[in-house]
Amino acid sequence: MSTAARHLLVIGIGAGDPDHLTLGAVRAMRRADVFFVLGKGREKSALTRLRRDVLDEHLPGPYRVVEAEDPWRDRRQASDAGYTDAVRDWRRRRADLCARLIREELAPGQCGAFLVWGDPSLYDSTLGILEDIGARGEVDFTCEVVPGISSVSALAARHRITLNRVGRPVHITPGRRLAEGLPPDDSDIVVMLDAHESFGQLAGSGVWIHWGAYLGTPDEILIAGPLDEVADRIRHTRAEARAEHGWIMDTYLLRRRPEGPDA
């Protein structure tokens, strides 16, 4: 039996467009003996199909995929403490699952890959979960990370804007943090993971919004304008899209005023 360590690739695959993969990501995919895919139920089966579309586009021959159902996560927690505890519990169960898949489906000396939406460094749990598995000492592996195009980069490209203005910072936050209000500085705000349309709390603030959903996919939707003028349109569009597809992934940029000559 081989005593060589298993090798894992964590590959950023962009927001959904197979053309968003970097050359480094394509080369890494072609090294993999098996791809691990955690499904999120029938409602989000399109996400699994999109991963297979990426593989079909860039791999020259047959490939092996091991699928498993992602553990259920309690998203009902309102308090920060409850939310943190729910995420910690979900990540522990996800680590249990991934450890089993690596141990049972990847032979020592082989290379496995996790295909991560966007970039593995931005609001994704894969690297933290693999770190947890490694700390347990139950299975020996090495890990390599391949960066990808994030939904944030895709959003800016599709709206033909920059994320920052001259000499000004960019603030990236999950939607739940908007309850604390806008940052006190003059930063532009990129909002991710906003399941509750938190932009509605900023009515009357004078900000502009550049919003996008299903970025990089055939179902992509873009809306931009003064928040007070387009908020209802975003809510309506978002509800329709979620009803049609059973899921939605969106992100947006909030800017205190339109892009000016100092941009």
Results as ranks from 00 to 15, higher is better:
Ala81Asn: 07
Ala81Ser: 14
Gly82Leu: 13
Gly82Lys: 13
Thr84Lys: 12
Thr84Gln: 14
Thr84Ala: 15
Thr84Arg: 15
Asp85Trp: 09
Val87Asp: 05
Val87Asn: 05
Val87Arg: 14
Val87Phe: 08
Val87Leu: 12
Val87Gly: 04
Arg88His: 12
Arg88Thr: 14
Arg88Lys: 13
Asp89Ser: 10
Asp89His: 13
Arg91Met: 10
Arg92His: 13
Arg92Tyr: 06
Arg92Ala: 15
Arg93Ile: 03
Arg93Glu: 08
Arg93Leu: 01
Arg93Trp: 00
Arg94Trp: 02
Arg94Lys: 11
Arg94Pro: 00
Arg94Tyr: 11
Ala95Lys: 07
Ala95Ile: 05
Asp96Gly: 05
Asp96Ala: 06
Asp96Pro: 07
Asp96Met: 04
Leu97Met: 11
Cys98Gly: 00
Cys98Ile: 15
Cys98Pro: 01
Cys98Trp: 04
Cys98Asp: 01
Ala99Gln: 15
Arg100Asp: 15
Arg100Ile: 04
Arg100Gln: 15
Arg100Thr: 14
Leu101Phe: 11
Arg103Leu: 07
Glu104Phe: 10
Glu104Gln: 13
Glu104Met: 03
Glu104Arg: 09
Glu105His: 07
Glu105Trp: 08
Glu105Gln: 12
Glu105Ile: 01
Leu106Gln: 06
Leu106Glu: 10
Ala107Asn: 03
Ala107Gln: 13
Ala107Trp: 02
Pro108Gln: 05
Pro108Tyr: 07
Pro108Phe: 08
Pro108Ile: 11
Pro108His: 03
Pro108Cys: 07
Gly109Met: 06
Gly109Thr: 00
Gln110Leu: 10
Gln110Lys: 14
Cys111Glu: 10
Gly112Pro: 11
Gly112Val: 07
Phe114Gly: 11
Phe114Val: 11
Phe114Cys: 10
Val116Lys: 03
Trp117Arg: 07
Trp117Thr: 09
Trp117Asn: 08
Gly118Tyr: 01
Asp119Trp: 01
Asp119Val: 08
Pro120Ile: 00
Pro120His: 04
Pro120Gly: 02
Pro120Gln: 00
Pro120Cys: 03
Ser121Arg: 11
Ser121Phe: 07
Leu122Asp: 01
Leu122Val: 15
Tyr123Arg: 04
Asp124Tyr: 02
Asp124Ile: 02
Ser125Val: 08
Thr126His: 06
Thr126Gln: 06
Thr126Tyr: 10
Leu127Ile: 13
Leu127Cys: 07
Leu127Thr: 04
Leu127Ser: 00
Ile129Lys: 01
Leu130Thr: 10
Asp132Ser: 14
Ile133Thr: 09
